[in-house]
Structure formats: structure tokens, C-alpha cells
């Protein structure tokens, strides 16, 4: 029997603008990802993919290809234009998560999904202590026991190699790598089965990048979490992802096993991407 995917996305689209007769219908005439007439931007177009339990799915593409919009849509930071999302851990995968009320979407965010943003300012409250940042997700999920939350936060901080004597410091005092590790701890605080990572190593120096990537890999092995990793860095994708999706102008142009996509790219853009490594 075929394994059931933990997350299924079908025909997800996100556009900014109303569209016009030039960019809607069967004969779409877009310039890159926007309509030259009405300037509507089609950030994601008919995106469909599946994520399996314990799998790491990589998404690569150039800046503006729609990777981050896709991640924000999956985490309900952006409202999608159309599409279906089914999570096995929510209503046994029978309800479209994008059509749920904001309260239900918040519940999904706080219990089933975890998110690590490229910019730690988006994922962390820089004025509160690291421990409170991690506890925030637990409070949002309904936990009202201070000592239990404190214990869990310390466990996670230890897990992501933050010195515990700094647990009461605000993340604004931390280095970029440490802030990302606090974000990862926060994302894991309610044991979500799905973790979304949006360009987590961008802006970090190489040795810190390696630390963060090792951490992600070890967490995935230990907890068997499914992950979606977005990056424009093929080395990151090569190191982490089991399968890879290549995006261009808001669409998926190629997908397959990571080795297959990176060693034997079929689409002209993917070939250009792979061979343009410095």
C-alpha cells in the first residue's frame, strides 16, 4: 500500500492584483511572473507537491521565483488566491487547511507546523528572553503551566546548543547563528510533525552555516520530522534534501530526487542553475 503524504498541496496559486483578460484564461501571456498589461503579479501558479513523513523536501529557485511566498502561504502568513492543502494530522487530511477559520489556522500553526524565517526579526520577539520566545508557542497552544514550559524551553535551548546561562537574555544580544538556533528551538517547542525552513542559512558565515545545517540534519534524524527547506543555495539543498523542487517565475519547472535533479538536470533553467556554481 502506498504511503499517505503528511502534506499535500494541490494547485496552490497566489496573485497580487486582480488580473485581466490578458493574464487569465487559457492563453496566459505573462512577462516572467507578472502581467505586462495590468501588472498583476503571479507569485505562485498551480503549485502541487506532496511531503512524506520524515522526508526533507528542498525548494530552489532564484530570487523572486515564489519560494518564500509559498512558505508564507503554507504558514498562513499570506492568504492564498486558490488551492488545496491537506495535512494528515489535521482532520485526517480531509479538510482544506486554507479554507479554515483564522482560529483553526492558528491552531494548525501552533500545533502541527513550525516555521524558521530567514529574518529572525520575523520569528522572534527581540525584547523578550529566549525562554519566553520558545514558551510563546506553548502558551499559544494552551499550556498554562510555567514550570513545565520553562523545563521544555531549557531542554530545547540545550538541544540547539545555546548556553543555558544565556537563556534569560533577549535574542537581540545574540549572533545571527544563535538567533537562528533560537528560532529552530521555538519552531520545535510543540513537537510539530512538519517544519518549514525559509533560507535559514542566508546571511550567516560558512562555519555558522555548517553548524546550523548539522543541527537541522540531526534534529530531522532524531525526531523524524518532515521538513520543507527553501534555499537559493544548491549546496544547502544537496546536503539536506531527499527530493527537490525547482521553481521559476512562480511555477514548478522540475522536481525529483535531489541527486537526480542536481546531477542530471532536464530543464534549461535548472541546467543553468546547476552549472552556474562559482
Amino acid at each position: 500500500m502506498k504511503e499517505q503524504p503528511i502534506l499535500q498541496i494541490q494547485k496552490l496559486s497566489k496573485q497580487y492584483g486582480k488580473g485581466c483578460i490578458h493574464c487569465q484564461g487559457e492563453h496566459v501571456q505573462l512577462e516572467k511572473n507578472f502581467c505586462p498589461v495590468c501588472k498583476t503579479v503571479y507569485a505562485c501558479r498551480d503549485i502541487s507537491f506532496e511531503l512524506y513523513r520524515g522526508e526533507i523536501l528542498g525548494i530552489v529557485g532564484e530570487s523572486g521565483s515564489g519560494k518564500s511566498t509559498l512558505m508564507k502561504s503554507l504558514y498562513f502568513d499570506e492568504q492564498i488566491t486558490s488551492g488545496i492543502g491537506l495535512l494528515e494530522d489535521y482532520e485526517n487530511g480531509t479538510a482544506n487547511i486554507f479554507e479554515q477559520s483564522r482560529q483553526q489556522q492558528r491552531l494548525i500553526r501552533n500545533t502541527i507546523l513550525g516555521m524558521v524565517y530567514q529574518n529572525p526579526m520575523l520569528g522572534l520577539n527581540m525584547d523578550f528572553s529566549s525562554m519566553s520566545n520558545i514558551a510563546e508557542k506553548q502558551i499559544a497552544a494552551g499550556n498554562r503551566h510555567v514550570r513545565n514550559m520553562e523545563k521544555r524551553s531549557l531542554e530545547l535551548l540545550d538541544h540547539v546548543n545555546i548556553p543555558l546561562f544565556r537563556s534569560k537574555e533577549a535574542p537581540r544580544n545574540f549572533s545571527g547563528g544563535m538567533q537562528q538556533r533560537v528560532q529552530i528551538a521555538k519552531a520545535l517547542s510543540n513537537n510539530p510533525p512538519v517544519l518549514l525552513l525559509d533560507e535559514v542559512t542566508t546571511g550567516l558565515d560558512l562555519s555558522v552555516q555548517a553548524d546550523v545545517l548539522d543541527l537541522i540534519k540531526s534534529i530531522q534524524r532524531e525526531l523524524n520530522i518532515s521538513m520543507i527547506v527553501v534555499s537559493h543555495d544548491l549546496a544547502v539543498i544537496r546536503m539536506l534534501a531527499d527530493r527537490t523542487i525547482v521553481m521559476l517565475n512562480g511555477q514548478i519547472i522540475e522536481h525529483g530526487l535531489t541527486d537526480q535533479v542536481l546531477e542530471d538536470p532536464q530543464h534549461a533553467y535548472t541546467q543553468q542553475l546547476v552549472y552556474s556554481l562559482l
Binding site: 523578550f128 528572553s129 525562554m131 514558551a135 502558551i139
Partner: peptide, 11 residues
């Protein structure tokens, strides 16, 4: 609102 109180307890 609970987070504010939690932060105070931590500090």
C-alpha cells in the same frame, strides 16, 4: 497577555 506575565516570572 500570558507571555508578558511569563516573561516577568522568568525575570
Amino acid at each position: 497577555a500570558y507571555l508578558m506575565l511569563f516573561e516577568q516570572i522568568m525575570r
